[in-house]
Design a protein around this nucleic acid. Structure first.
Lengths: 205, 205
DNA sequence: AATTAAATTAAACAAACGTTTAATTTAAAC
DNA sequence: GTTTAAATTAAACGTTTGTTTAATTTAATT
């Protein structure tokens, strides 16, 4: 995948608009106008509006798995590692939040002609790594046994995304500006998710 | 708000299609076809496609606050009450999941001409009730103090919605059919959220 | 300087969009 | 049975949609 500057400019403009207005809510003319290019360039470079989205997904996917494995292999205490993993996850999805929003929406709408294989494969790989780590902690007696492993990441990602989707609501509630919300995410929100998951992992009912 | 049978039929058809394909991804002709009515009936009854969505939101909103207050006033143990509240929330949003999905996406897309006042007011009222309940538990020494109250409901709703938005993924992972997924939501998923929140509320770092 | 391929453009395309119109049918009131 | 208002229809409205065309400009190669 080698993309020139103009292609990247189109991709990032499209990402912003798709996340703001949805895929169907964004027209190719909007994209071309915002990216200061001619409408035909989209078909010329990517083939179609849908293939543009395919390319965007590939463009944003990369080396998350390696980062995850690196954190685990450092062999700190399980609790410390959990903290680091969660901070890493939040940092990653927050950075790529726009693309994740598009994926969430388009993936839950069965019918589109978009290729989610790459996304799903990566999702499953990441899950397996975290699953193995937690199971090891359970065997060592550090983590509780009565945990639904499949839903652990659901809570991590779900908390973040629900916050992000209701950004406007929380901004009003917490008196956050567009510039302070990032620090809130990396401090309070991350801390809340860390506490939640650590509590769950060490909770014996 | 008095709606005749035909109007309700249109609303429920539209709800299904909006949740499946998004608001912009659904055309009035699709709705009219699926609801077996003429296209013009949508403008005739609701004025426009956007006003149809306004009406749908009002139609689905109702007496959740009363149910919540009723559960709390029963004065069971705080832990028992938390379990009941969470089961109630999951039951409600799962029942109205389609409308909530529409709201989530349309609300996070700033620019549409839809009236979210009713929705936001209800959301804030519900939050205040739960906040008061948890604070009382903290004063009584049952719940931990270091809890970000604003993010408590975020985790509850976020976990549910992330599961729902990635339904296809979890269906494959957990070998669930369309008919068994409802029982999974009301059993395993509810249990997971209950355990998570109870763990967090009683977790001292 | 001439050649060639890539990049860029304005214009046109057919199809689909939400909405309106004007005519017709249905059903209730008198 | 006639009148009247509501319900329903097919057709047309003007836009906007994603994509393609064919002509032109740009920039590198020979």
């Amino acid at each position: 995948m080698d993309l020139n500057d103009k292609q990247i400019q189109i991709l990032e403009t499209a990402e912003k608009l798709f996340a703001e207005n949805g895929f169907d809510g964004t027209s190719v003319r909007q994209i071309s106008k915002a990216a200061h290019i001619n409408v035909a360039m989209i078909s010329y470079y990517f083939g179609s509006k849908e293939k543009l989205l395919d390319t965007l997904m590939l463009y944003r996917m990369s080396d998350f798995r390696m980062q995850l494995e690196s954190v685990i292999s450092e062999n700190k205490s399980p609790i410390e590692t959990i903290d680091t993993i969660i901070a890493l996850i939040v940092k990653r999805i927050h950075k790529n939040r726009r693309m994740h929003k598009i994926i969430n929406f388009e993936y839950s709408n069965g019918c589109r002609n978009i290729d989610f294989d790459h996304y799903l494969r990566q999702k499953k790989e990441n899950f397996k790594i975290i699953e193995a780590f937690v199971k090891k902690g359970q065997n060592d007696g550090v983590f509780a046994d009565n945990i639904n492993l499949n839903l652990l990441t659901t809570t991590i990602l779900g908390t973040y995304f629900h916050f992000y989707y209701n950004k406007k609501y929380y901004q009003a509630l917490l008196n956050l500006t567009d510039s302070t919300i990032d620090t809130y995410v990396h401090n309070e929100l991350t801390l809340h998710i860390q506490n939640t998951i650590k509590a769950l992992l060490t909770y014996e009912k």
